[in-house]
Design a binder for these strands. Structure first.
Lengths: 348, 348
DNA sequence: CTCCATACTGACAACGTTGTCGACAACGTG
DNA sequence: CACGTTGTCGACAACGTTGTCAGTATGGAG
């Protein structure tokens, strides 16, 4: 830590349109007209204004602007995810921000940590800032409080999971189909004793993925109930659950992990047990180095870019037409075949 | 994609303090006093106001509030990173957002994509919204345009790299020391032909890391110039450069990758060449599955949490005391020993 | 030349809030 | 009782902008 002795220059008041008007020798309303590209300004007058703007380094105060504007729009939107540091969330953030910026909007972000209280608090903060709309990954049993926001004219879009107790534009992944494809892939390699590790069933995506697993397994005689473990919310729990699964008799010969945190725990468990090379494995959610693991991880990859873009698109379309019927979009997943899913069942 | 026929309820004007005042039968200034916890309000009056607030579902308009406030503060800050989807950036975002929120501030985010033009554009947008301060990972040869922002009273903090052409609070990692430690670690396993893959030398972190490499290698007779490759900006370029390195005679026996994108390309190259198991490797930047690779990746891990927190702390301290001397904080890296760095040199 | 339409410009209100100030009541002190 | 002090409250200006409207110059038609 080093200290540099320079104190900053004295801060001065930012110039306003009135300063610009005075400098240009015009009424301040004329300046406003130029800045908003309104018609009926002489080109010469316009140039004088722009020159004064440049000389003073004037920059519009869009805070003041949006309080006066008739539509009360702030050209900003809010995005609430569970954890900004999570790759799924950050990829979403990136896409949403790009989409918004192309349309002149900025994005406020926040992590809910899966806590409905924090979610509601963030929604409140965003509302206070009068965002034009919000995109959220909803948490908890009830998002009906968002009706209040909508009545104020704020657009609301859910992504990854539908909100509860409220109808709204929603974008989700094809969770069940993705897991079903994983099951069929494993079955092709001769597996019938396929185990599944999932998060809390109360989470929409977890429930959908589990349902996809059960349904697909039905075609192969159904899943062994002991081979299904849910309620795993971090890598450590997944690690333990996986270890327990392989202590069973008969033990599963293949494993599906319901999300990326579970994948991390499960692969660690297989590693500890020394059965990484002979246990077939498919993970939900892609991971940065998945193709460099040995065996390379076969995954059900979510199309986070499409998810984020669809959510942003829904938001802006909602802003354009508040009366349109709500839409629910399902985004296909991509089944990424590498090698871990092709490990054959013993004797196959 | 499914459509639900519900049209939304008619949007109505959000209630203002005047609506609250009328409902409570009080002057609107009294309502303002209650909302801002100003003294000299009778408890009974206060209750009446709060009741009216609750009945109307009033929520302060902090947009209007901040235009009138004497300090002109908006309780929002801006964060500009290269790519919001990058794990380094998203981890930073998470920490900065948490820190800001604890202090009642919201965070606007943006990706510069390493382009000075986009960076300046985002700075402009943030300025228009009158953010209280900005944290940025600077790009390009000159950030002196930020002086203008500061003159307006906006605090500026650089993170990951110092800004150029301007003095400001800055937080960076101990890049050189981290790479030097990697070199010593490899040397301990008997390596002297250690190669280095880096990004553009014009990027501050790349230059620092390369310098750390050269300096540390000097203790072991210096690096072979042919074993240093820079200007690698994506995994593909790194892949090719690594392949070329190992076609040399004498080929290097160990490799250091200067950032996470280079790591991905380099490991792929080692994989293709079939020399992953016998080439010592240390990566700068940790990766999610690094410990599950075989061999597990030894890395120089940046403390993104400390980096982000220090940046946020600097920003808020700057807001509290604009005249304090600028500070430059260096955050230590963590050398994470796994196995890839311990692969011995041939005949050692 | 007169008249009217149109282009251009500025004075002023308004947005929802906070800051300033003064009015008024209650109270204590001499 | 007179007076100052303190607590409580509201009227009004102000923030920087956009919306409304009216005023003035200009040009073309008659």
């Amino acid at each position: 830590m080093a200290a540099v002795p320079n104190p900053p220059e004295s801060p001065r008041r930012a110039p306003t349109i009135k300063d610009v008007a005075e400098r240009a020798g015009l009424g301040f309303k004329t300046v406003s007209r130029v800045l908003n590209d309104e018609p009926n300004v002489r080109p010469e007058t316009r140039d004088r204004v722009l020159a004064a703007v440049a000389e003073l380094g004037y920059r519009r105060n869009s805070i003041a602007s949006s309080i006066r504007r008739s539509d009360q729009r702030t050209s900003s939107i809010g995005l609430i995810v569970e954890d900004l540091a999570n790759p799924f969330a950050s990829s979403l953030t990136r896409v949403v921000q790009d989409y918004a910026r192309e349309r002149g909007h900025l994005v406020l972000v926040g992590s809910s940590d899966g806590d409905p209280g924090q979610e509601a608090e963030l929604v409140g903060e965003f509302g206070t800032r009068r965002v034009d709309g919000m995109i959220l990954v909803p948490n908890g049993p009830d998002q009906s409080y968002l009706e209040e926001e909508r009545r104020r004219g704020t657009a609301v879009v859910f992504v990854d999971r539908p909100g509860r107790g409220i109808e709204a534009d929603t974008v989700v992944s094809e969770n069940a189909a993705g897991v079903a494809e994983a099951v069929r892939h494993l079955a092709l390699a001769g597996h019938t004793r396929i185990a599944y590790l999932g998060d809390f069933e109360s989470i929409y995506t977890s429930a959908e993925r589990l349902q996809g697993f059960r349904d697909a397994m039905a075609a192969f005689g159904g899943a062994d109930p002991r081979h299904i473990r849910t309620g795993l919310h971090d890598p450590e729990q997944a690690h333990r659950a996986a270890a327990e699964l392989f202590a069973l008799d008969p033990a599963p010969t293949a494993l599906i992990a319901g999300n990326n945190l579970i994948t991390v725990g499960a692969v660690h468990a297989l590693q500890d047990l020394g059965i990484r090379d002979r246990t077939a494995f498919v993970a939900f959610d892609d991971l940065e180095l998945a193709d460099l693991l040995r065996p390379a991880l076969t995954v059900v990859a979510q199309d986070t870019a499409a998810l984020g873009e669809a959510a942003a698109r829904h938001l802006f379309e909602r802003l354009a037409d508040p009366a349109a019927p709500y839409r629910r979009t399902r985004v296909p997943v991509r089944f990424e075949v590498r090698s871990s899913g092709a490990i054959p069942a013993p004797g196959h």
